[in-house]
């Protein structure tokens, strides 16, 4: 419950405060958000499976974000930033879909 509240508060704060994102971080923010979403879906599925551990969630969340940003950064340096970020989004999209399928089976038994 508190976790859901945290998400809601984050969205509200982000909409109201309109913090300025440093220009250095800006290109990586969308990818980082997608990576974090993947981690959250993974964590939700683990919770439904009854194998959720907060430490694992934290590590997976942070490492997902960092690795995704790193890949985009590397891609930008290599001149294939657009393609690589597309690839990262596709991979994370697939993972999110498979996790969502697992969650669906748990919640709807279908």
């Amino acid at each position: 419950m508190i976790a859901v509240l945290g998400l809601v508060v984050g969205v509200v704060v982000g909409l109201l405060v309109r913090p300025e994102v440093p220009a250095v971080v800006e290109p990586y923010l969308p990818i980082a958000v997608v990576a974090a979403l993947d981690a959250v879906f993974g964590g939700l599925r683990a919770m439904l499976d009854g194998i959720f551990v907060d430490k694992v969630f934290v590590v997976s969340f942070l490492s997902n974000v960092v690795v995704a940003a790193l890949i985009v950064f590397l891609g930008d340096k290599l001149g294939v930033g657009a393609q690589l970020s597309t690839g990262v989004v596709v991979v994370f999209g697939i993972r999110i879909f498979s996790n969502a399928a697992a969650i669906r089976r748990h919640v709807f038994r279908a």
């Binding site: 945290g6 984050g10 704060v13 994102v21």
Partner: peptide, 25 residues
């Protein structure tokens, strides 16, 4: 109020923040 709930809340707060900023921008 457990440690797990608090940690996940913190991370989800960060996620929500990033999501809102990105959508906004």
């Amino acid at each position: 109020v457990t440690r797990a709930q608090l940690v996940v809340a913190l991370l989800l707060f960060v996620l929500g923040l990033g999501l809102a900023i990105q959508v906004r921008s």
